[in-house]
Write a protein that binds this DNA or RNA. Structure first.
Lengths: 212, 212
DNA sequence: CAGGCGATGTATCGAACCGATACATCGCAG
DNA sequence: CTGCGATGTATCGGTTCGATACATCGCCTG
C-alpha cells in the first residue's frame, strides 16, 4: 500500500525521504493522517531490494569540490524510480482487489487516478461504493433494531457514522456519473476547468499530466 | 487502545472471544471498520497476564455430567473483568493524552462516554476539535496555495477531505455545546428517547470518577 | 558572537495491529 | 447423511506506528 504510494510520488521526481514524506502527507492527507518514518524507511528498503527504486547520492554541486552537504556522513539520500519500478507501479495501480476498498488503500488509489485508465477507475469507485453501502446498511440495522439498548453516546456515534457513510455514497455516485459521462471531476459552476470539453480524460499514460 | 475497548465491553458482561468481537464491531463500527482476531487474542492474553481479566470456563450446564461443549478440547472460553481491570478501565477512560485524538482512539473513548465524567468528556471533545481544525486548516492551505499544481482527482480528494473535516468540526461544536448545557446528546425534535429528561447522563460511576 | 531553538534530515526499535489461514463444532436444508 | 454456513479459538508473517536518537542548518536573541 505504501509501496504504491511511494512509487507514484517518485514517478514525478526523484526525492529524498523527508520530502517524500511531506508529499505523501499532502497527497494522501485527505484519507490517511500521516505516514511515519517507521513505515517509510522500511518500505524504501524493500523497494530498493526489489529493484524498483535506486538510491543515488545527489548531484555533486556545480563545481569541482564536493561540499559535503552535512560535513561527515549522513548525506541526504535521493531515491529515484527505475524502469522496473514503473512497471510495478502500472501493475499495482491497475489491480483492484478487495483490499483496495478499505479506507487507506482506496485513498491511495484515488490519489493516482490521473494515471489510471477509466475502466479501472470505475471498477475501484464501484467497489468502494459497495463497501460503503454495506457499512451504511449495517449501521442502519443497528440503529433500527437495537437503538433502545444503546446509550445516548453510542447512538450518537452510530448516527454520525451513518451520516458520513450516506454522504460518501452520494459523493461516489457523483464521481461515477462523471466518469461515465467522460468528464473530469471538478466544480462545473465555479470555473469550467475543462478547456477542451472533448470528454477525454484518460489515455494519459506516458508520464505527464495534462490535467489543468 | 484495544485494551480500553475490551475492558469496556467486558464491563457489561462476561463474554467469549467471538461475541466480544461482534460487540466491538458494532460499538466501534462508526469510526473503525473491524477488529481482527490477530489483534483481539493477543490483547486478551496481555490483559490476562496483567490480571485485568480472568479466563473462566463457562458454567457447567445444569446437571451433574459435564457435556463437553465441543467434544474434546477447544471449549469456548469466557472472559470476565476483574476488580483490577475495573480500576484500569477507569484510569484509561479518564486520561486524554494527545494520542487520544487520532481517529480510532477518539472513537473508542467516545463510545464509552456514558462512563466518563463530564470534565473528561469536554477535554476529549475539545482536543479532538483542535485536531480536526488543524487538519482542516492544512487542507485549506493546500487548496488555496497549491490548487493549480494538483491534478483534478487529487484536488477532488482534498475537497472531500476538507468537507468532511468541516462537518466534523460542526458536529463536535454541537456536542460541546450540549455538554456545557448539561444535556445528553440525542435528537430533540424526532423522538425523545430520553425517558426522564432530567438532563442527567453522567454520574453513573460504577466505580468512582474523580472530578478533575 | 554565543548559544539556543525550530526546521530539515536519516534511521531504528519494540509493540500493536492486520489479513490470511487452519482447525473444530453446530445446526439445518436438501 | 451430507455438505455448507455460522459459530468459535487460535497463530503466523508481515506492515505500520509511536517514540526516540542523532546530526546539521539557518535564524533570532541576548
Amino acid at each position: 500500500m505504501l509501496e504504491l504510494a511511494v512509487l507514484g510520488i517518485l514517478l514525478e521526481a526523484p526525492m529524498h525521504g523527508y520530502e517524500l514524506r511531506k508529499q505523501l502527507t499532502t497527497k494522501l492527507g485527505a484519507f490517511r493522517a500521516a505516514i511515519s518514518y517507521g513505515s517509510l524507511y522500511p518500505t524504501l528498503r524493500r523497494l530498493q531490494a526489489a529493484g524498483y527504486i535506486t538510491e543515488a547520492s545527489p548531484e555533486e554541486g556545480t563545481s569541482s569540490a564536493d561540499i559535503p552537504l552535512m560535513t561527515s556522513r549522513r548525506g541526504r539520500v535521493v531515491y529515484a524510480i527505475t524502469a522496473e519500478g514503473k512497471e510495478r507501479f502500472a501493475e499495482l495501480v491497475a489491480q483492484a482487489g478487495p483490499e483496495t476498498f478499505d479506507d487507506p488503500a482506496f485513498g491511495v488509489h484515488f490519489a493516482f487516478f490521473s494515471r489510471t485508465d477509466r475502466q479501472t477507475r470505475l471498477r475501484i469507485l464501484e467497489g468502494r461504493r459497495r463497501r460503503v453501502e454495506e457499512r451504511r446498511e449495517g449501521l442502519r440495522q443497528v440503529l433500527a433494531r437495537a437503538a433502545e439498548r444503546l446509550d445516548a453516546y453510542t447512538l450518537e456515534l452510530q448516527r454520525h457514522g451513518l451520516e458520513a457513510a450516506e454522504r460518501e455514497v452520494r459523493w461516489l455516485e457523483e464521481l461515477i456519473a462523471t466518469e461515465r459521462s467522460g468528464r473530469t471531476p471538478g466544480r462545473p459552476p465555479g470555473q469550467s476547468g475543462d478547456a477542451d470539453g472533448t470528454g477525454r480524460g484518460e489515455e494519459l499514460p506516458p508520464s505527464e499530466i495534462p490535467e489543468r
